[in-house]
Every structure is written in C-alpha cells, then in structure tokens.
Simulated scan of single mutants.
Amino acid sequence: MPTDMEMALRERFSVSLNESDALLSSDEIARNATGANVLFVTATEKIDANVFRALSPTLRTVATLSVGFDHIDLAIARAMGIEVLHTPDVLSDACSEVALMLLLNACRRGYEADQMVRSGKWNGWAPTQLLGIGLVGKRIGIFGMGRIGQAIAVRARAFGMKIHYHNRSPLAPALAQDAIYHSSLKELCRNSDVLMIAAPGTVELKGALDHAHLNALPRGSVVVNISRGDIVNDDALIGALTEGHVFAAGLDVFANEPNIDERYRKLHNVFLSPHIGSATHETRNAMGQLLIEGLAALRRGERPSNLLS
C-alpha cells in the first residue's frame, strides 16, 4: 500500500503486510491472514468462500482498495455477517484522466510515435506521417455512465466530442446533460466512433464486447477499456484490430492480469497500460483514507457510505 496509508494503518492496527507484493492465491491469503479482524485487499485478490470460511470467526471486515467488488463473494460475506467496504467516488477523476490518455494515444497513434522516435527511425516531419483520428465532432459511446463514465463525458465534451451512452436505464436529464441514451450495447456500438468501456465488472458482462458488437461499430472506430478486462472478448478485438475494422485500441485492463494475451504485445495499433486508472498519489491516499474512516465508523456503530454488506 502507499506509504501514507501504511503509516495510517499502523497507527490504528497491529498490521501484517504482504512485503513481497506478490499476487497471492486464495489459499495463501487465508494462511497469511489467520487471526486477522480486518483484511485489506485490492482488486487483484480473490476473496472467495474458502477465504471467508478459513478466517472465520475472527474476520469481521474486508476493505478493498477498489470501486469494483466482483473479486469478493458478497453473498458469502453477508451470510457470515462480514462487512465489506470499498472506495467509490474518490477515484473518478483519476480514472477518467487515464481514459482520455488511452483515447488520445489510440487515436493519435501514440505507441507508434514513441517507438519511431526511440528507435532512431524518425527521419523528420512528413505530411502523411502517422495520420490519426481527430476528436472534434466524433461520437464517443460510453458503456457505463456511472460516476467514472460521467467524469469521462465532461472531459470528452471539452474535446468537442458528442456523448452517447448505454446503461441499464437512462440518467436523469441533469446528469445526462444532453448525452444520447441507447437501450442496448449493440445500438450504442452502431452510434460510436469511439467506444469507451467504463461499466462495472459483473459476471453478466463477461465477454460482452464480442464479435457481434465489434462488427456493429463503424469501420475505423476506436475501443478503449478502463473497466474490467474480461468484458472484452480478446479473440474478437484482436481480430478486429488485425483486420482493420477497429482502427486502434487503448487498454488499461486485461483478462487474466498480468498474464495478458500475448497477441496484444505484437499489435502496433494498441496502446497498453498496466491497470493504472487510479494510480496517483492523491487518489490512492484518498482511497485508503476512505477505508480507514469506514472502519472507524463501523467500530462506532455507524453505517459508512462505502459499506457494501
């Protein structure tokens, strides 16, 4: 965890850390956390029924340094009376900034440009060199218009983009701010020059962006994913990028992280980043503080706003 957060935790708890930063299996988490009252985790740790049962009855609270909580078996947590805290709201700005970073680099061929300069193959300016896609007047389709999606829309409007979106239900007009609602993902794809995936990670959405939805995108479109890697069907996206139906992609999340599909590494029209959506000093410290304040509220017998169960 960030240094400030670890210091704050040590002031309040007897703390045992995963000093190696290795990704731990559920069994390893259960062994290392034996006797713990509170389990601090991130989106990379799977907290399943086996972990809950192994740490019962000592474990009282799981605090996850993430907005998403699909890595935690909430049904089991509720059944066992274990509280689960997460970190909504405080990372919307940071994640939306990375979304625009990915969007700009995908549209303006950022990876190719960087490699050209670093490799020494740049021979100077040329009128047709690395022609990309401009944003003014383009339609951005936001799949998942929650807090992060709305923050992305604010920034996309500043670039002159037209906002379209798909949610389970339309936003209130004050929140939508004239964004155009589409009742299905396929209809959104048909009306998107850029498809921005910002939907929450759920079992139901696994593989949602498949061949059919990618084919519904206009030829030459761009795909950006800051949500969950498994929402995207890798075979479908890689095929669309290779064939040229999708001009480029910007990806911050992947299925089976960090063991991503090797084919992405060989594509020049993909800008890749290592799941850094909330990676600013300010945001990570704010996330940690939100969890610490939530724990303090629970111990006072109050219900914090970031309590899931």
Rank of each mutant, 00 (worst) to 15 (best):
R300V: 06
G277D: 02
W125L: 04
S66Q: 07
T202Y: 06
E243K: 12
G277H: 02
D178K: 12
N306F: 12
H281E: 08
M161K: 02
K266E: 08
A199M: 03
K206S: 09
Q115I: 06
A176L: 03
R12L: 13
H281R: 13
R109C: 14
I29C: 06
Q289Y: 00
V224F: 09
V62H: 01
G124P: 01
C189R: 08
H71E: 09
Y111H: 15
I47P: 01
I276W: 02
P304T: 11
G149N: 02
T34N: 01
D21G: 06
H182S: 08
V224S: 03
I231Y: 03
A8I: 09
G134D: 13
E45C: 07
L267Q: 12
F13H: 14
I163W: 00
L23M: 10
L295I: 15
E257P: 09
G132W: 04
F69K: 07
E6S: 07
L195H: 03
S305E: 03
F40S: 00
A151V: 04
R31I: 12
G149C: 01
L131N: 12
I142H: 01
D235N: 10
P88Y: 09
A54T: 14
K138W: 02
F143G: 00
L59E: 02
S169A: 15
G250D: 02
L214C: 05
P200I: 03
L85A: 00
A43F: 15
S305W: 00
I152G: 06
P170N: 09
E243I: 11
K206A: 10
E6C: 01
R157V: 11
R157T: 12
E282L: 14
I72G: 01
G277W: 01
V84I: 10
S221A: 11
E187R: 10
E45H: 14
G207I: 06
H71W: 14
S273T: 15
S227Y: 07
V62A: 03
T280M: 05
D114K: 10
F52G: 09
A54H: 11
H245W: 06
H166D: 02
S305K: 00
L100N: 02
L209T: 10
R108Y: 07
H275E: 04
G207R: 03
S184T: 15
G301F: 05
S273P: 02
L85P: 03
N167M: 11
P218N: 10
A296K: 15
D93M: 02
L308R: 13
A75R: 10
F143S: 04
E112P: 07
P2F: 13
T58Y: 00
Q129M: 14
D70V: 12
L175K: 13
I76L: 01
E243A: 09
L59H: 04
S16G: 05
A279C: 07
M5T: 15
N259F: 11
A208M: 10
S26T: 12
R263W: 11
I163V: 07
N37I: 04
R139Y: 07
P304K: 08
E19H: 15
H213P: 00
A240L: 10
I29P: 01
L24H: 01
A94D: 09
P304V: 13
Q289W: 01
V224W: 02
R147V: 15
L290K: 13
E293D: 15
D4R: 14
